[in-house]
């Protein structure tokens, strides 16, 4: 029983202090591994790899994985509830007041500045994933100085095809994800 309570409280702390996305939780989980010996460093590496290669928010995946490794299925569920509880509480409070104040002129003008900045922030995320997915920096060879070798041609072809289809047919995003998974398996991406 004790282990579940400790798991809940530790993951509650992670949910409360890890600001800015799932990977921010990793150092906290490393701390847990040191303090409690719940999971080994190797299992943490597995955890990161599995969290990133399965669907779902990375922070939630990591919590389920760590809890499950430590204390079985129920441990995974408890750790997950722990990590999302602070979000739920904080956001419900903010959303409550936001509904009240969102029509005031000061909040309106604050958000008129925030929206373009958040669009810029999302563009940064798009730029980062585009760089790591479509370019192949380590293949670049200074001796031959062949700039074209940086481009991951296979990835770029699929990218252009999806952009074209997206604008032509406007189907559900999930359809493109599933189709891309099949293309990935067939053409060995």
């Amino acid at each position: 029983m004790m282990i579940y309570l400790t798991l809940f409280l530790e993951f509650f702390k992670i949910g409360l202090f890890a600001i800015g996305g799932g990977l921010a939780a990793i150092p906290f989980i490393q701390e847990l591994s040191k303090n409690y010996g719940w999971i080994t460093q190797e299992q943490i590496l597995d955890m990161i790899a599995v969290s990133e290669s399965t669907p779902g928010p990375i922070g939630v995946n990591a919590a389920t994985f760590a809890g499950n490794t430590t204390a079985g299925i129920f441990g995974g569920i408890i750790a997950t509830i722990g990590v999302i509880a602070p979000s739920i509480i904080i956001i419900l409070i903010i959303a409550h007041y936001f509904a009240k104040f969102s029509e005031t002129s000061i909040v309106k003008s604050a958000f008129s500045g925030i929206r373009p900045a958040v669009t810029g922030l999302i563009a940064t995320v798009g730029f980062e994933v585009a760089r790591t997915t479509l370019l192949n920096m380590e293949k670049y060879n200074k001796a031959t100085n062949n700039l074209l070798s940086i481009l991951d041609i296979k990835a770029i072809i699929l990218f252009c095809a999806i952009i074209y289809l997206l604008n032509k047919y406007k189907k559900h995003p999930i359809l493109y994800l599933v189709a891309a998974a099949f293309v990935g398996v067939i053409f060995k991406y």
Binding site: V129, L134, L158, F159, I162, I163, A180, A181, G184
Partner: peptide
């Protein structure tokens, strides 16, 4: 391989 394909789709979608 499936993830390799999915990552490209994620870039396009974002």
């Amino acid at each position: 391989h499936a993830l390799g394909g999915i990552r490209v789709a994620v870039v396009a979608l974002i």
